[in-house]
Amino acid sequence: MAKAIMYDATKCTACRGCQAACKQWNELEAEETKNTGSYENPADLSYRTWLKMRFTEVENGNGLAWLFTRRACMHCTDAGCVQVCPTKAVNKTDSGIVYIDREKCTGCGYCVEACPFDVPRLDGSRVTGKAKMFKCILCKDRVDNGHEPACVKTCPPGALDFGEREDMVAKSEARVAELGDDALLYGDKELDGLHVLYVVNHPLKDHKLPVNPEVSPAVTLWQDILKPVGYGVVGIVAGGLLLNYMVARARMVKAKEGK
């Protein structure tokens, strides 16, 4: 049932077809950018950049490597953004897509801060707070209609694949085995399983992927403890006040009658 993207960094050539295809399919406007001494651009994800490639030059005993890393929503199973969304605008579909129903989004931005991968972005104004959250939704409309996500479909060297998550995990494991010692699969277990799996053959830190991503304890505290406690406290107080009213009123009536 659950789907997943497999990103094989060892095949990726950073042609950035995915970056452009994402904008094309999702009707995202271009950013104004600068060359700051790198091929990498835009500098960061934004409300109109849902996917970008990261370029990293690494030199070690094995010579020079030019690493490319996909940067977009990981569609976590244990998704901080979903947990934290006060209006349930960010939600998880059966296929594992972390979807944002922008109608429901109030732009609070809690998801932005709750994401261990720093993915969700807000548009709009910081001052008025009127905003919506934007991020990769794994081309939900395409997936719902049996098509691959735009980035996967466009990938020339076949670095991206899409399918049933268990198939993608199996394929990734096979690829890792084929690549040998340095290779590893990222995303199978992280956050109860990401729906974007990475095959890399350089250390995660070289790819700037968080080694043990986790949803901040604050998010758990807030969502699983504080909120229910809040309802409880308010419930108790409200109940107490109601009781008080009934009792006090009854007494007053009694007292009056007594007079």
Binding site: P86, T87, K88, A89, E103, K104, C105, T106, G107, C108, G124, V127, T128, G129, K130, A131, K132, K227, G230
Partner: peptide
């Protein structure tokens, strides 16, 4: 409260309440 209670979130859609809040 609209942000706190999902059942009320429809009121917050569009973000007007967030401007009012500010």
């Amino acid at each position: 409260l609209f942000l706190y209670v999902p059942a009320f979130s429809s009121v917050a859609e569009g973000g007007a309440t967030r401007i009012v809040h500010r």
